[in-house]
Amino acid sequence: MEHNPLRDLIRLLGSVFVFAVSIQLLLLLVYYFLFKHAGINPIDFISLYKYSPFAGKIFLGISSIATFILPAWYMQVNNAGATSYFQTQKTNFWQYITVLFILVSFMPAMSLIAHLNREMELPALFSGIEAWMRKEEMRMEEITKIVVLDSTISGLLMNLVIMAVIPAVGEELIFRGCLQRIFGKWIASPHVCIWLVAIIFSAIHMQFYGFLPRMLIGALFGYLYFWSKNIYVPIFAHFLNNASVTVMAFIYSGDGKSYEEMTAFEYDTSDIYVASLILTSIFVLIYYKVSKRITNGKELD
């Protein structure tokens, strides 16, 4: 028995609101009593992260679980016999290897796209909106800087959990698992559905100067799931993507380098970007072919 997609969407949004708001309010209340002696207002996230990076990381991790993992779990356990949100069809070792090659080969092109997005300027008519967007971007960048720049092994392990494991599991369950399936009942074209979810995925992060690369990576995750019909594949890809940044920040921090040095952009020759796009396209095509053979019951030799 299939559910009504509108009802499913309302249930999903309602569960996200209830879990996220209730658990975050509880956590803020706990933090208020823990840090009131220091005059720290937990609602002022930057001051909280600066005063206690550990407490900030705990807040970030629990918030991600409440916003993504718990609502996805709720949707699945209350599915009432309908088709599972999270497909787990058989996969092949080479699919995961190809995913790694896709992400590595796309890095130069993605870096260029991210730089061009950061350089974006809106027309003067929207100067107020642009000022707000840049303010939000700087606020999120300040928090990210505090969280990821940790040169200790314990800090690296904690960052991998809260920056890579939890987001990879939670965001893929919600966006590729729940939303992609719900929208798929409304929208005949899977491509429109995948790109719509990718746009929402990028917009929900509220980091507009990273919108394009995040949208593209979201679309990639969508196609990985659509072709493999296995939610573990985009989770794996999402983890690799986030973990690579986390490990890079650990290395830079250990070398005494700043966040600005880590995110600095230098143009490569056009050949590098062309090669990046060509190789990415080849590996995506290989992934598509491998996935189709497996989903059609024709295991590769």
Results as ranks from 00 to 15, higher is better:
residue 254 G to Y: 01
residue 160 L to V: 09
residue 185 K to I: 04
residue 188 A to I: 12
residue 212 L to E: 00
residue 186 W to L: 15
residue 216 L to W: 03
residue 209 Y to Q: 09
residue 159 N to W: 04
residue 160 L to C: 07
residue 253 S to K: 06
residue 245 V to A: 11
residue 195 W to I: 15
residue 172 E to F: 08
residue 204 I to V: 15
residue 222 G to A: 05
residue 238 H to S: 04
residue 167 P to I: 08
residue 189 S to F: 05
residue 190 P to R: 01
residue 171 E to P: 13
residue 222 G to V: 10
residue 236 F to S: 03
residue 203 A to W: 05
residue 248 M to S: 09
residue 228 S to H: 02
residue 210 G to C: 12
residue 201 F to Y: 12
residue 183 F to L: 15
residue 221 F to P: 09
residue 216 L to F: 12
residue 183 F to A: 14
residue 216 L to P: 07
residue 219 A to V: 13
residue 230 N to D: 00
residue 195 W to L: 15
residue 182 I to S: 10
residue 179 L to W: 06
residue 248 M to H: 00
residue 220 L to V: 13
residue 247 V to K: 08
residue 254 G to C: 06
residue 256 G to T: 05
residue 182 I to Q: 08
residue 160 L to I: 14
residue 210 G to W: 07
residue 204 I to P: 14
residue 233 V to G: 05
residue 250 F to D: 01
residue 190 P to D: 00
residue 227 W to C: 10
residue 172 E to V: 09
residue 215 M to H: 06
residue 206 M to P: 03
residue 207 Q to C: 08
residue 222 G to W: 03
residue 182 I to L: 13
residue 231 I to P: 09
residue 234 P to I: 07
residue 248 M to K: 05
residue 165 V to A: 08
residue 191 H to K: 11
residue 250 F to H: 07
residue 237 A to D: 02
residue 160 L to Y: 03
residue 248 M to V: 11
residue 198 A to S: 12
residue 240 L to E: 01
residue 248 M to A: 13
residue 239 F to T: 01
residue 240 L to V: 13
residue 202 S to P: 13
residue 227 W to I: 13
residue 203 A to E: 01
residue 199 I to H: 02
residue 190 P to K: 01
residue 169 V to A: 03
residue 174 I to L: 15
residue 225 Y to W: 07
residue 229 K to P: 10
residue 200 I to M: 15
residue 219 A to G: 15
residue 203 A to V: 14
residue 222 G to N: 02
residue 210 G to L: 14
residue 239 F to A: 02
residue 164 A to I: 05
residue 255 D to L: 14
residue 176 R to D: 02
residue 220 L to N: 01
residue 219 A to C: 11
residue 254 G to L: 07
residue 258 S to I: 11
residue 177 G to N: 05
residue 220 L to I: 14
residue 229 K to M: 09
residue 226 F to S: 08
residue 183 F to E: 06
residue 238 H to K: 03
residue 199 I to K: 03
residue 219 A to Q: 05
residue 206 M to T: 13
residue 219 A to Y: 06
residue 165 V to R: 02
residue 238 H to D: 00
residue 171 E to F: 09
residue 192 V to M: 14
residue 234 P to V: 09
residue 205 H to T: 09
residue 188 A to S: 10
residue 222 G to I: 11
residue 248 M to C: 06
residue 173 L to W: 05
residue 241 N to M: 11
residue 187 I to C: 12
residue 252 Y to R: 04
residue 206 M to G: 09
residue 196 L to I: 14
residue 234 P to Q: 01
residue 231 I to G: 05
residue 231 I to T: 03
residue 191 H to S: 12
residue 244 S to C: 10
residue 182 I to G: 12
residue 245 V to N: 00
residue 203 A to P: 06
residue 180 Q to D: 03
residue 181 R to V: 11
residue 242 N to Q: 01
residue 171 E to R: 08
residue 223 Y to H: 11
residue 255 D to K: 09
residue 211 F to I: 15
residue 167 P to M: 07
residue 213 P to D: 02
residue 193 C to G: 09
residue 188 A to M: 09
residue 171 E to I: 12
residue 233 V to I: 15
residue 247 V to F: 13
residue 172 E to T: 06
residue 167 P to Q: 01
